[in-house]
């Protein structure tokens, strides 16, 4: 038997873990970048423009950004493909449901990975149309991203902040189980290590949520404006 590992359920999990970790690395960099908003409009806009020139003069303008986007797109597609394949398989594996459903013994984070992922995906699409392309932004001025962000989270657009918060909390739950799960998938194999992996995943998810939520709430409360 020389079937490719990716055809097996374990192989799909490995793909999910590797692409998930790629996305997590991006999330960390993106959060650090977002926090520049606390250093003022100039600092934030300068950072946003710098993103377009990474790799200069080796790479022409915005090439790095496009390479990064290609890698992220590949990661998202691979991640969703594996998630969908495993979800369909799981459904087929239990054709008759239990009349009496027992209470969840594991974590709710683990049980909400699939629907949480869908929320994240919808948010990512909205987010790109809002702050990358500017189509859904009330200002949409590519030269001044700081102004776009401030306009986005204005108090009378509370529903934007609400959706953003919901999405960030979903990411937090997704990573609370996802990071622990990814470590296990990549070979974490002791009970002691399991406790550390769970603690790490929880801590990481909390810090990431706090970092991402600080921006809209700073705008909402007038700390940034």
């Amino acid at each position: 038997m020389t079937a490719s590992p990716i055809r097996s359920t374990v192989g799909k999990k490995i793909l999910m873990a590797v692409t998930g970790i790629l996305l997590v690395l991006f999330l960390v960099l993106h959060m650090v970048g977002n926090l520049k908003i606390f250093f003022g409009a100039e600092s934030f806009d300068h950072y946003a423009h710098w993103l377009r020139s990474i790799g200069n003069p080796l790479l022409p303008e915005t090439w790095f950004l496009w390479i990064q986007r290609a890698v992220l797109t590949f990661a998202v597609l691979g991640h969703i493909w594996a998630a969908t394949a495993l979800a369909l398989r799981a459904r087929a594996a239990r054709p008759v449901r239990y009349a009496h459903r027992g209470k969840v013994q594991g974590s709710y984070a683990a049980r909400t990975m699939r629907w949480g992922g869908v929320i994240i995906l919808l948010f990512v699409i909205y987010h790109i149309l809002d702050l990358t392309t500017g189509h859904l932004n009330p200002v949409g001025d590519k030269a001044h991203p700081y102004g776009n962000v401030v306009a986005d989270f204005a108090p009378d657009r509370w529903y934007v902040t609400l959706f953003y918060t919901l999405a960030v909390v979903s990411v937090g739950f997704h990573l609370r189980h996802g990071l622990y799960s990814a470590l296990r998938t990549l070979g974490q194999q002791t009970k002691h290590g399991e406790r550390r992996a769970r603690a790490f995943a929880l801590g990481f998810a909390v810090v990431l949520c706090a970092g991402y939520l600080s921006v809209p709430f700073a705008v909402l409360t007038g700390l940034v404006g």
Binding site: T9, V10, K12, K13, L86, R89, A90, A92, A93, R94, V104, Q105, G106, S107, A110, R111, M113, H177, Y180, S181, R184, T185
Partner: peptide, 9 residues
């Protein structure tokens, strides 16, 4: 059988 997602049940 389905694939494991480390659900912990």
């Amino acid at each position: 059988f389905g694939g494991c997602t480390n659900a912990g049940e």
